[in-house]
Nucleic acid binder design. Structure first.
Lengths: 242, 242
DNA sequence: AAATTACATTGAGCCGCGTCAATAAACTGC
DNA sequence: GCAGTTTATTGACGCGGCTCAATGTAATTT
């Protein structure tokens, strides 16, 4: 028998979550999993444009995205802005806050989204009792480091069109893992946001997309994107200048 | 009474290490500290140019730099290279390897260096028993994430001279924390390596340094660098294009 | 449906940085 | 010391991406 329940502060069951393989690929016994369920709460829907946390907010929890799409961005003193990532269902955000007990970036919903809140102190506590969980946390943190360093490579050494190709291929792969089409999807962000992420101006993003379309590698119209030739995109990304 | 000992596989005492405040700012009892000492070994000297680990190497340990200077770099398939960081005494490297049990970058000594090896499995084990140690590990991992995201901001939004200024100020601050002059130090890396780190060509690095010198903000001759005006450099870094 | 606003595309022109090249200076090994 | 190599500086020039501007299109409000 099911009943409808309000969706704020609802207890979430990782044990029955269809994102578990993505979010928490760890072998835990039934009892262990229940202990994890105990500390995670599902928060209400975050509407498009709303802010999950802001730079400066006290750090208290990590957040697993249950449904939806987020961006994270840094804003420095002089008004410079950098989108540091786009996150989708099954991914975990907020790890920037651990080091100084305060978040160092903003997390903004790019579409209506649901998230699971994981109080960090309690996660650490449980990690001490469940080594596989501890290990998983370390892997997630390290994966974020590797991800960021690959973006440094992109920003430091690729040209505009290569960056775009790398970006689209990355989205494609992440959609594929989630069971969506790897070749046809909606961009959830503006050209300006893509540009900020890739270190380009929005006009350059638009031109590069148009050019990839002329090259018959993609079809793009506003936010709908279709990849016509995955290997072509890969080649485009890989081509060295010299 | 002291005696000389070979310096490979020497047991290291964090408890008496003068870098402890930098490397391991954690309150542990005498007994707890000894347990930590037990798992850390000092490895032999890494000569200038030698490699601490390579991309693809099995991940087994984190490394604390005791003396010296390292760079880390990614090399992707097409031969593109990106220096992802320069590390100095008291800093910890190798965290990229946790996520996939293999290192994803190379770590190269830029001068003769000594390092402490921290087997990661045993560190995790000990972390489960010593919550402050566990928390410290999490902070270090998170700090690396924040650091990388700030480099993304630099690469994505700053111009050549601003990047240089930010880079020099960062070095300056790190030297200061270690008790060295914040205004006069040796660059341990080539212009090419600085360029790779900052997403610039070596000629651009050279020109930008020359220009900062013309502006009376620094004196530079080969690898010796003197900062004449810290606040001037800060201003130079901060100035927005519009 | 009209009006308003946000977002995207495209062109023209310019400039910062990359490319190429020449030279100098600093290391390294003998 | 000298030869060979690596590293750094500087100039000339070109191009990729930024700036500015105009126009088009989609989403939202009235």
């Amino acid at each position: 028998m099911h009943k409808l329940v309000p969706n704020n502060s609802l207890k979430t069951a990782c044990s029955t979550c269809n994102l578990r393989k993505l979010c928490l690929p760890v072998n835990l016994s039934h009892i262990e999993m229940e202990r994890l369920d105990d500390l995670i709460t599902r928060k209400g829907v975050y509407r498009h444009g709303s802010i999950l946390y802001r730079s400066g907010d006290k750090f208290q929890a990590l957040y697993a995205i249950r449904t939806g799409f987020f961006k994270t961005q840094i804003l420095n003193e002089d008004g410079r802005e950098q989108v540091t990532g786009f996150q989708m269902a099954g991914e975990i955000i907020g790890m920037d806050g651990i080091s100084s007990d305060a978040h160092t970036c903003d997390a903004v919903a790019l579409e209506d989204s649901e998230i699971c809140e994981i109080p960090f102190n309690r996660l650490e506590d449980l990690g001490r009792e469940l080594p596989p969980l501890q290990r998983h946390l370390h892997r997630i943190l390290s994966r974020e480091i590797v991800r960021d360093q690959n973006i440094m490579l992109l920003l430091g050494s690729m040209r505009a069109e290569e960056r775009l190709a790398a970006f689209l291929l990355n989205l494609s792969q992440r959609f594929a893992v989630r069971g969506y089409s790897p070749t046809s999807f909606q961009l959830r962000m503006t050209r300006q946001e893509i540009g900020s992420y890739l270190g380009l101006k929005l006009e350059t993003v638009s031109r590069a997309l148009s050019h990839l379309q002329e090259s018959r590698l993609i079809n793009v119209r506003n936010r709908s994107l279709e990849i016509l030739c995955l290997s072509g995109l890969q080649a485009c990304m890989g081509k060295r200048v010299r």
